[in-house]
């Protein structure tokens, strides 16, 4: 794998898409600012989810060249190997778009809280507290987010016709699967890590106990699924024909 080719591919991406990405960032900033103006934790959380969903749709743009015959031929004959093309898009999705999302979220929250502060100075302390709590409590959610990115990354290479709707459908299915994994791992954690006397005695105590445990199964499941779907994406790219 040649780093120079990856840099060239990234440059080529920016030449073509920097304007679109600015519009996309503004859309996130405006949405987050609007939602963070009121309704406490639910609206802030909703704004974050919305930004995450928008980020999950970015692979459609990254692999947009694969959806039409002429652009697919152009993309596949760019002098870079299949692995370089996949790695470039992985970097753009997991680093560039995530940074873009985080920056846009921060600006959006600042803007929203700023407006809120003008309206009611007490609101700022309240909102800031909510945000801090939300960020510190979601470590496993970050991992779910990155493994979901791996799934939509694969889906966007795999589906050639109506990729948008198929990606949305994939997102729904992935959410259900991840929800099932989360629930089952929580149950597994309870069984494996909570002593029987606590487990049988008090369910709430069990959950409290679990929340202090590392949740290793979820971490492993997320990491394995990430590796699996990126490997599948590479294989799919290698066998893509014009």
């Amino acid at each position: 794998m040649n780093t120079n080719n990856i840099i060239k591919l990234i440059k080529a991406y920016f030449y073509e898409n920097w304007q679109k990405d600015i519009y996309y960032s503004f859309a996130i900033v405006a949405t987050v600012a609007m939602f963070s103006l009121g309704f406490g934790i639910f609206s802030s959380r909703f704004a974050i989810i919305l930004a995450a969903v928008l980020t999950m749709l970015q692979p459609i743009k990254l692999f947009g060249n694969l959806y039409q015959s002429s652009s697919r031929m152009h993309y596949l004959t760019i002098p870079a190997s299949n692995s370089e093309k996949v790695v470039t898009n992985m970097l753009l999705l997991n680093v560039y778009f995530v940074i873009l999302m985080v920056v846009a979220l921060c600006v959006g929250f600042l803007l929203g809280y700023g407006i809120g502060y003008v309206r009611n100075p007490e609101m700022l302390r309240y909102n800031w507290g909510i945000l801090k709590e939300m960020i510190s409590n979601t470590r496993i959610e970050y991992l779910y987010f990155f493994s979901s990115l791996a799934v939509v990354f694969f889906a966007s290479i795999y589906f050639k016709k109506n990729p948008f709707w198929k990606l949305v459908l994939t997102g729904v299915v992935v959410s259900l699967v991840l929800g099932a994994i989360a629930a089952s791992t929580e149950w597994l954690n309870v069984v494996l890590t909570v002593p029987a006397e606590i487990r049988n005695g008090n369910y709430y105590k069990s959950i409290e106990h679990v929340s202090q445990s590392p949740g290793w199964f979820q971490y492993v499941a997320c990491c394995v699924s990430m590796v699996y779907f990126y490997a599948l994406s590479f294989l799919r790219m290698r066998e893509t024909e014009a």
Binding site: N5, E16, S69, H74, I78
Partner: peptide, 28 residues
């Protein structure tokens, strides 16, 4: 791939100006 160029009949061109297109793809 750096040793071949395939000029298709149905041309795909990205949303770029000529100079940008050159700067974007000539380095390959």
């Amino acid at each position: 791939l750096k040793d071949i160029y395939f000029l298709q009949e149905e041309i795909h061109v990205p949303h770029l100006k000529i100079k940008q297109f050159e700067e974007s793809f000539a380095p390959f």
